[in-house]
């Protein structure tokens, strides 16, 4: 039977002109880049070791409020350089938030895939856990675990990783089910592919953009949780320092030296604001189905 190659009509991939991100999002990106640079280059740009005391310059105000350029953001009650402590705190907070977000995404996605793959009792168990997570405010859960299990950096990151795991689990399960029922995943499975191949090579890349958007939306929440717990003195413990931890200790000097507290507070607000703006923008651009 003559089966001539079809005429060479090629359909060009749709090229949508990508508008530049709005000004606010651009500002967010710049701020975030600055924060990342501080976290990465911390030791190089930090004027002092963050624990070094300068007892002759205690509670010295920042430049512009009567302080000297030696300590641009002033010093705390022990004469420690606020800028250096801020840089160290940014690094700690970002590392914790990033680690926890990744832990949550990996855990949630894995459980979601397990639920979608095995169905039945496994799925029921995962969905019951999802219900359970949604039924208690996470801060209370975190406080309970910290009370019972004590505090260490590793545990703290894992604990914060439990935040929002159920969102990834819901997304991963739902999308995997729909891809398996009629779509590409069912087709690949029917080619004889192993579950590893179906989930790793096909489903995961297909839902990655949705997961990344969810991570971007969860990231500021994790920063807020970390700083909240550290503010209460139950998160990052001295001598390590984080943004919330700095605000917590600076609180005692609110009347005499508000800069100790204001510098990290501004960083927290601007960072969460930036990531939220970027996340909203990414969601609108990449995945309008998420809301």
């Amino acid at each position: 039977m003559p089966e001539a190659p079809l005429p060479a009509v090629t359909i060009a991939p749709p090229r949508i002109a990508r508008p530049r991100p709005p000004v606010l999002v651009m500002c967010g990106l710049i701020w975030l880049a600055l924060m990342l640079a501080m976290a990465v280059l911390g030791d190089l740009i930090s004027p002092f070791p963050y624990t070094q005391m300068d007892l002759r310059n205690r509670l010295s105000p920042p430049v512009g409020f009567g302080g000297a350029w030696l300590h641009p953001l002033g010093t705390d009650e022990l004469g420690r350089d606020v800028l250096s402590r801020l840089i160290s705190s940014i690094r700690t907070s970002l590392v914790i938030a990033f680690g926890a977000t990744v832990v949550g995404a990996v855990l949630g996605t894995t459980l979601g895939f397990l639920a979608a793959h095995f169905r039945g009792i496994v799925e029921q168990a995962v969905m019951a856990l999802v219900d359970f997570s949604a039924s208690i405010p996470f801060l209370i859960l975190a406080l309970a675990v910290l009370a019972f299990l004590g505090n260490s950096m590793g545990l703290f990151v894992l604990l914060l990783g439990l935040h929002a795991w159920e969102r990834y689990a819901r997304i991963a399960r739902g999308l995997a089910l729909s891809a398996s029922a009629q779509g590409y995943a069912g087709a690949v499975r029917q080619l004889g592919a192993s579950p590893w191949r179906v989930y790793g090579r096909h489903i995961l890349p297909n839902i990655a953009s949705t997961l990344i958007v969810s991570m971007t939306l969860a990231f500021p929440e994790v920063i807020l949780l970390e700083s909240g717990l550290s503010f209460l003195g139950l998160g990052v413990q001295p001598p390590d320092t984080s943004l919330g931890n700095m605000v917590g200790y600076g609180r005692e000097y609110l009347t005499r030296a508000p800069w100790i507290l204001l510098a990290p507070a501004v960083v927290i607000v601007l960072t969460t604001l930036s990531v939220s703006l970027i996340g909203d923008w990414l969601r609108d651009r990449l995945d309008p189905t998420l809301r």
Partner: peptide, 13 residues
């Protein structure tokens, strides 16, 4: 092997 009704759905985009 199988040929599906909806080829766009059966292919990984």
């Amino acid at each position: 092997q199988m040929v599906f009704q909806d080829p766009l759905g059966a292919l990984d985009r």
